[in-house]
């Protein structure tokens, strides 16, 4: 297992070429109400290449969500930086927003809008011309299997169907980089599997995918590499094979060992 302190860290298991997500010594500190400083993310560096899925693992409070929200420009780093598709998150947040798709556990899909209306509404926030947007939405409705409920108000959809709408919303501007924060947390087993199959398809299209989850068993064989966070720092990283000790047979074992150490 390789940690951040290891000089080999930057090279472990990585494909060659320019990364689609490049995180360099990223730090986010919060001021707590009692005046103390909370080090939510504390000097994190890693990258994700196109056509690659990287699993971001960590317990609650490890700093995963804060890290992802800095990447999608919802939060500003205290120090360090990151780039998305070559665009710096500090210098050009609008450029980053054009290149990134974001899916969270809470779908936040408007109940009153139908899936089709939701995709069109969010697509307009990217300034996509109407004809092009409508064609793109039709493609997504078909590709994500939403045809049967595309015109039903989202308030009447199941959690799995709503998560598909959320995925469609993240894809409506066809971003090359996708960030998923616990996308299967509120979805049943079947819905979760379908969603992860869609992710595999997106990866095969050449998109870079950063996926945060608690459900380690679900993504064990679906991620090319893993980054394990604990208390705001990366405690281990690598491919499944690199992370597992000979006595271990699941990424869960490697995760527990990394966090415990």
């Amino acid at each position: 297992m390789v940690t951040d302190q290891d000089p080999r860290a930057a090279d472990v298991g990585q494909p060659q070429g320019l990364p689609a997500i490049d995180v360099v010594d990223l730090v986010k500190h919060y001021q707590a109400r009692d005046g103390s400083v909370v080090r939510a993310v504390d000097g994190v560096s890693f990258n994700v290449h196109r056509g690659e899925t990287v699993g971001l693992l960590g317990a609650n409070g490890a700093g995963k969500t804060t890290l992802l929200r800095m990447l999608v420009t919802l939060l500003k780093p205290t120090s360090g930086t990151a780039s998305v598709d070559g665009v710096d998150i500090r210098e050009d947040p609008l450029g980053v927003r054009r290149r990134i798709g974001y899916v969270s556990a809470t779908t936040g899909v408007p109940d009153r809008l139908t899936p089709r209306e939701t995709l069109i509404s969010y697509g307009r926030l990217h300034g996509i011309p109407t004809a092009e947007l409508e064609a793109s939405v039709e493609r997504l409705v078909g590709a994500l299997g939403m045809t049967s409920y595309a015109d039903r108000p989202s308030g009447r959809l199941s959690s799995g169907q709503r998560q598909r709408v959320s995925l469609g919303r993240a894809l409506v501007h066809e971003p090359p980089v996708l960030v998923f924060d616990e996308p299967t947390a509120a979805v049943d087993l079947l819905g979760s599997r379908e969603l992860l199959d869609l992710l595999a398809q997106l990866r095969s299209e050449g998109r870079a995918i950063l996926l945060s989850t608690h459900r380690l068993h679900e993504i064990e064989r679906r991620c090319d590499r893993f980054v394990i966070m604990h208390a705001g720092r990366i405690v281990a990283r690598g491919t499944r094979e690199e992370l597992l000790e000979p006595s271990e047979d699941s990424i869960e074992d490697a995760f527990y060992r990394a966090v415990a150490s």
């Binding site: 929200r69 999608v72 420009t73 919802l74 609008l94 927003r97 054009r98 990134i100 974001y102 969270s104 809470t106 779908t107 936040g108 408007p110 969010y122 926030l125 990217h126 300034g127 959320s166 919303r169």
Partner: peptide, 17 residues
Amino acid sequence: ERGTWIHVAVRPNGRRA
């Protein structure tokens, strides 16, 4: 409250719109 702010705020025109 509805959990929609993050999805609007990550769009280029989201917040100002």
